[in-house]
């Protein structure tokens, strides 16, 4: 579970003030307060994931544990939070964790389309590996992207007739139109 929380770069995520508020980590019994709490957590998780370019997150991720305060947003509470975020379309369950959509697949699709256009790669075939790990995408936002999220984005393009995916499981390629 000790996923890389501080592997990427040295820069620190600027936690909001709520994060040093002890009661923030206890599920609030008052309905209205709880809703406000979920909204705050939701914004925090998204900002955190965006900062660290995190694509997957589990309900036991270290972000839910404030070591300094010795407070923990317990797993069931975090699960409830993620479920709340799912209803807003901000996460999607995959087994025991979620994809965090700090950028939604359709927005990734739009970015990809623009990139393909800008780099004159229409009609070319790229492997998914090339997109996430290749030199061509170095310095772009796609580099290091989660493969499955990429596939979701590409499927949006396929649906709109802007791309075609072919190949086998681990050697998928895509052609843009």
């Amino acid at each position: 579970m000790s996923t890389a929380i501080q592997t990427e770069a040295g820069d620190t995520f600027p936690f909001p003030k709520d994060y040093s508020f002890p009661a923030f980590f206890t599920r609030q019994p008052n309905l209205q307060t709880h809703h406000a709490q979920l909204e705050k957590w939701s914004a925090l998780v998204l900002a955190y994931a965006r900062h660290h370019r995190l694509f997957r997150l589990s309900p036991t991720h270290p972000v839910f544990h404030n070591k300094k305060l010795d407070r923990r947003f317990a797993e069931p509470d975090a699960r409830e939070l993620l479920e709340h975020m799912r209803k807003d379309g901000r996460v999607e369950w995959v087994g025991n964790e979620v994809f965090v959509y700090w950028r939604k697949p359709e927005d990734w699709a739009r970015k990809l389309e623009k990139w393909v256009e800008d780099t004159a790669q229409k009609g070319h075939v790229l492997t998914l590996y090339e997109i996430t790990e290749g030199e061509a995408t170095l310095g772009t936002e796609f580099h290091g992207m989660d493969g499955e999220v990429l596939l979701k984005a590409l499927n949006h393009l396929v649906k709109r007739g802007r791309a075609q995916i072919f190949g086998q499981d681990d050697s998928l390629g895509v052609k843009f139109f």
Partner: peptide, 9 residues
């Protein structure tokens, strides 16, 4: 009362 809670790695 409190400073930012987590220092980065």
């Amino acid at each position: 009362v409190m400073e930012p809670a987590i220092e980065g790695g």
